[in-house]
Nucleic acid binder design. Structure first.
Length: 949
RNA sequence: GCUUUGGUGGUGGAAUUGGUAGACACGAGGGACUUAAAAUCCCUUGGGCAGCAAUGUCCGUACGGGUUCAAGUCCCGUCCGAAGCACCA
């Protein structure tokens, strides 16, 4: 029987599906292992060869873990809400659900062809109301929670209310939007509206006004990375900054825990660093500055408290409320003009065009250490959102302050010995402090930093500031709360209705609040989100049910929120849902959660390093606070697979003005002799950079009569590595590869391409190599129709080939070095073929070894051996013992630094014995004939070096 | 600008983490089998020099230094590429 991958693959894929081979149970005596892929967004284009790269890797790992005796959870689902389906709906009127379902079916069909070991009974779709019920549930829980820094966890908002009743804000250390302080009496005096407003300051899911990227063309808010040069990436519509009231998640409350948690998980250092940067912890000092001639004072934040003696001016953010208060009448006109200018600049302009601008307020602040007057300026380089929106400027030691000082001709006072600040500032935190205070200048309580190192000076200043109540040590984070509202249709609705403008939750037992049908997916004429078109989108509070929008009366029937949640919502807890996907009572049942704990192995693209992977960790920590998730971190080990890039091919059309003439194309090597235009050509009609000219003529009607200038009788195409995309004609569909070579070959080849973390271009050139290997592998078992494996004692060489492979495979798979594992297979199979090995004792385990990579072939052969169930590695313990590599160490023997030969000696030998043995060797004696040995150096286990006189 | 990564044959990539650089594969060239093709198998394949030959020998991991008996691997400097952050005080 020849290797007929088509019948083998369809046969076993059907068998796995009907047997539910990969169904994972929530109970087992085996240890658990949870292998997860980042679930895909089912786009209309279907899968290309880049998508399965990660899935194949994780599937190999999952199958390997099963062989090692684990109960493996390996699920798959779809991140199905999103803008493309909605955009398509706007253009065609096709309901996003229809598009999405079609796309999912295509994905499923393509995935099934590759032979993954997913437990499809656990599939989730984020757009399924049964699923997003739990997204909405978690959101409501966040709405009903506040964050307590004292216990460092989320707690029910009712507990906060009870505290306010008794003591007001006294003794509360909560995460909040604005610092509030009131007594129990004041709380009791508040009306309901005021109380709700107050609680909003503390809720973890809260409404707040924030500046957003508003895209009128798309009718929605966009994330920063969806905007380039002031226009939307999708559609190219203009984007403006606009204040809007939005739902926010108080992720900043978790900043420190998100940071600390990174030390407990096994992620690549680069992703950890990206997250650390994103969280942006900086430890500094908040200091109070008095305003000269007034009893007002304001607060600044600095990480360089030690530079207090070099402050020559202060700068306020233009948006700061202090600007109005500190502007003197003489400067009012100037300041207002400046504010107008800043307002006219978008955030993008401020970022791309960094000019030095600012204006003097007319006020002076008093340096608390020296009593000196310092002018207060306004400048757009100070951000209102970070720190206190006000800084003390030390031009000598901060490059931004320096640029500002030079531009406005403000003084620069150097504070570090030997630092030359005539051309640029000295920003480094090193050196010996001077001028602090300057000779003869006053200083509060005679405080001096002169002679200290910068580090010493920072801590000395902090201590002094705290003791003298000039300020406090403070930690700042760059992390911002997550804006959670999107003005779209195809997302999770907020389960919130509004009474008198105040938000209230739809009762938990009425969830999910399902997305209503609408006739048109565009925003409404009045600029409301698409849900503004829904006919039945009001809440009847009395009967706890949906009601017609027209019936809203503000007494019993109230409007429901018209926004939906962003894509990150559905992906924030899906890994928990997989553990217990059919549970109607909970997101995940206690037992299932206790059993599966968290994801052991998570694989996906590094583009999610900041968004999904931060939101998901936050979401999980929040659920952990309430005991719904038993682990602090959702993803124990994270691996980022690289992207598969496209490899485009070009043909070179000879330029010609005569369009009636047949187009002429010249081969790559000859193109410099002509004037040509490169044209992308479909890579599917190019083989090894040689164009199939007949297929090319058939490809496009305008090329029907094409003529070719060939070299060596072939048309050679040019090539380039580009993004895999339809417009470059370089998309390779995995279905084609499966049809042509089989799924097992595709799996092998994608892994053989290189390390999974690495991005690389797809190039089908090398696929014949693994295809050949697989046929060779097959021939170990079959000589045409004849089944070869037979009983008998394997030879030493056969055992060695097998056991070298066993060792190598286990080492390499744990390191995820699948390409080298496959090399090891090629070597082993080559050796066994040379030995004409037909021993069952070798071939049977060989099938087990290859099964993670080529499951179809393995299943076929395994059944042929007469086994029904697959086995674990542990079922062959004798293999490791039957053949033991002698416990030797290889010494490289060198003379005067040049390696001459190697010597294999027992590990147990001591230094002197090794020297003796090596010197006694024939080769050594040959080299040493008539020479004097000066010394012999033995490095344990490594090398013996003989130095001659 | 800062941070993180990389730079090895014609190509994709190996190298037990400091120990015979180029495993494995592709491509290329030569050969065997065959009427022929497919398939399969064998040999050569980093560069230079010497030799009919087995082989010997020198140079080679972006570049320049250094540490070491020994460096692709560690350290310093330079050049180039990729990714992330980007007025965060």
């Amino acid at each position: 029987m020849d290797y007929d991958y088509k019948s083998i693959e369809t046969k076993w894929q059907a068998w796995w599906a009907s047997e539910k081979t990969f169904k994972a149970e929530n109970h087992s005596d085996k240890p658990k292992y949870y292998v997860l892929d980042m679930f895909p967004y089912p786009s209309g284009a279907g899968l290309h060869v880049g998508h399965p790269l990660g899935y194949i890797a994780s599937d190999i790992y999952a199958r390997y873990k099963r062989l090692k005796g684990f109960n493996v959870l390996h699920p798959m689902g779809y991140d199905a809400f999103g803008l493309p389906a909605e955009q398509y709906a706007i253009q065609t009127g096709q309901h996003p659900e229809v598009t999405t379902t079609n796309n999912i079916n295509t994905y499923r069909r393509q995935l099934d062809k590759i032979g993954f070991s997913f437990d499809w009974d656990r599939e989730v779709r984020t757009c399924d109301p049964k699923y997003y019920k739990w997204t909405q549930w978690a959101f409501e829980l966040m709405f009903k929670s506040w964050y307590d820094y004292d216990t460092d966890k989320a707690r029910p908002i009712d507990e906060l209310k009870a505290h306010f009743e008794k003591q007001g804000t006294e003794g509360i250390n909560a995460a909040q939007s604005e610092p509030l302080s009131f007594t129990a009496q004041e709380w009791k005096a508040m009306d309901e509206h005021k109380r709700q407003e107050t609680l909003m300051n503390y809720r973890i899911a809260y409404r707040g006004v924030s500046m957003v990227n508003w895209c009128a063309g798309l009718g929605t808010v966009l994330a920063n990375d969806e905007v380039v040069n002031g226009v939307s990436i999708r559609g190219g519509f203009p984007v403006v900054q606009k204040p809007m009231e939005q739902w926010n998640l108080r992720i900043t409350a978790y900043a420190q825990r998100l940071l600390d948690g990174l030390d407990t998980i096994d992620w690549s250092e680069s992703v950890k660093i990206i997250q650390r940067n994103w969280i942006g912890r900086s430890e500094g000092t908040e200091m109070e500055f008095k305003v000269k001639g007034s009893d007002r004072h304001f607060t600044i934040f600095t990480t360089r408290a030690d530079t207090i003696f070099g402050v020559t001016f202060m700068v306020l953010a233009p948006e700061s409320e202090l600007v109005k208060e500190l502007t003197t009448p003489e400067h009012k006109a100037e300041v207002e003009e400046y504010l107008k200018y800043v307002e006219g600049r978008t955030e993008l302009e401020r970022m791309s065009d960094r000019r030095v601008t600012g204006v003097f307020t007319g006020s002076y602040a008093v340096n608390p250490f020296t009593g000196e007057d310092v002018p207060v300026w306004v400048g757009e380089y100070v951000l209102s959102g970070y720190g206190t929106g006000a800084i003390m400027a030390v031009p000598a030691h901060d490059s931004r302050d320096y640029a500002f000082a030079r531009h406005f001709n403000l003084p620069v006072v150097p504070l570090i010995e030997g630092a030359d600040v005539s051309k640029e500032s000295f920003d480094a935190k090193e050196g010996i402090v001077m001028n602090s205070p300057r000779k003869g200048a006053a200083s509060l309580d005679g405080f001096s930093l002169n002679g200290l190192t910068v580090k010493e000076a920072i801590s000395a200043t902090r201590k002094f500031v705290t003791e003298h109540h000039l300020g406090r040590v403070k930690v700042n984070y760059r992390l911002r709360d997550a804006i959670w509202s999107r003005q779209r249709y195809w997302g999770e609705p907020f389960p919130i209705y509004y009474k008198d403008g105040e938000p209230f939750c739809i009762p938990e037992d009425k969830l999910p609040l399902a997305l209503p049908e609408i006739s048109d997916y565009r925003p409404t004429e009045t600029g409301e989100p698409p849900l503004g078109r829904a006919a039945k989108w009001a809440w009847d509070e009395k009967n706890a049910c949906l009601a017609d929008t027209s019936k809203i009366d503000g007494k019993n029937i109230f409007p429901i929120d018209l926004n939906t949640m962003p894509g990150f919502a559905g992906s924030s807890a899906y890994y928990l849902r997989y553990m217990d996907p059919h549970n109607d009572e909970a997101l995940v049942g206690k037992e299932a959660d206790d059993y599966w704990q968290n994801v052991d192995f998570y694989l996906g693209g590094s583009e999610h390093a900041t968004h999904h992977l931060i939101y998901s960790r936050f979401w999980n920590m929040f659920l952990y606070d309430y005991g719904y998730s038993c682990k602090k971190e959702p993803f124990q080990k994270l691996v980022n697979q690289g992207m598969i890039q496209g490899r485009s091919n070009f043909v070179y059309r000879v330029n010609s003005d005569d369009h009636a003439k047949a187009p002429v194309f010249v081969s790559l090597g000859l193109k410099d002799k002509y004037e040509t235009t490169p044209i992308h050509v479909d890579v599917n009609i190019v083989h090894g950079d040689v164009l199939d000219t007949e297929a090319f003529k058939a490809w496009r009607p305008e090329y029907r009569n094409a003529e070719f200038v060939l070299e060596d009788g072939k048309y050679v195409c040019g090539w380039a590595v580009e993004k895999m995309s339809k417009s470059m004609f370089n998309v390779v569909n995995p279905d084609m590869i499966v049809d042509q070579y089989g799924a097992d070959t595709l799996r092998l080849y994608e892994m053989f391409l290189g390390p999974i973390e690495q991005s690389k271009p797809w190039d089908t050139k090398g696929i014949d190599g693994v295809s050949r290997f697989l046929r060779k592998f097959w021939r170990l078992f079959y000589d045409r129709e004849k089944w070869l494996p037979e009983d008998g004692q394997p030879s030493r060489a056969e055992l060695k080939a097998l056991h070298t492979l066993i060792g190598k495979e286990q080492d390499d798979i744990e390191k995820l070095s699948f390409n080298t594992t496959i090399s090891a297979f090629m070597i082993a199979v080559g050796e066994l073929a040379d030995l004409s090995c037909t021993k069952k004792a070798i071939l049977e385990p060989l099938v087990v070894l290859i099964s993670p990579f080529c499951p179809h072939v393995a299943e076929e052969l395994w059944h042929k051996f007469g086994h029904e169930q697959s086995v674990s590695f542990a079922a062959f313990p004798q293999y490791k013992e039957e053949y033991t590599v002698e416990d030797n160490v290889t010494y490289a023997v060198s003379f005067n630094g040049k390696t001459r030969f190697t010597a294999s000696l027992p590990k147990a030998l001591g230094k002197a014995e090794v020297e003796e043995k090596v010197l006694a060797m024939e080769q050594t004696e040959k080299y040493l004939a008539g020479k004097n040995v000066a010394k012999v150096i033995v490095v344990p286990g490594k090398i013996v070096n003989i130095v001659l006189k």
